[in-house]
Amino acid sequence: MQIHLNGSPKTITDSTTVAMLLHELGVPSTSVVVELNKTIIQPDCYATTSFQDNDQMELIRFVGGG
């Protein structure tokens, strides 16, 4: 299936979860916010949240310094 990741098309397998996708992208899951169709997914749901065709996912990565 195809989803949109930060506005760009991305092909994933049907059973992919948010956790799996973050792992595939090499993104540290503790320093990001995942928005799926404009709803923020809580980290404890990453492993159980999968995708529907055409889902819009936004990955917001935070960087250190404050």
Binding site: T30, S31, V33, Q42, P43, F62, V63, G64, G66
Partner: peptide
């Protein structure tokens, strides 16, 4: 206004 990116994400969640 945290320093660590993990704390920023924590605040957001």
């Amino acid at each position: 206004a945290f320093d660590a990116p993990e704390m920023k994400a924590l605040a957001a969640h």
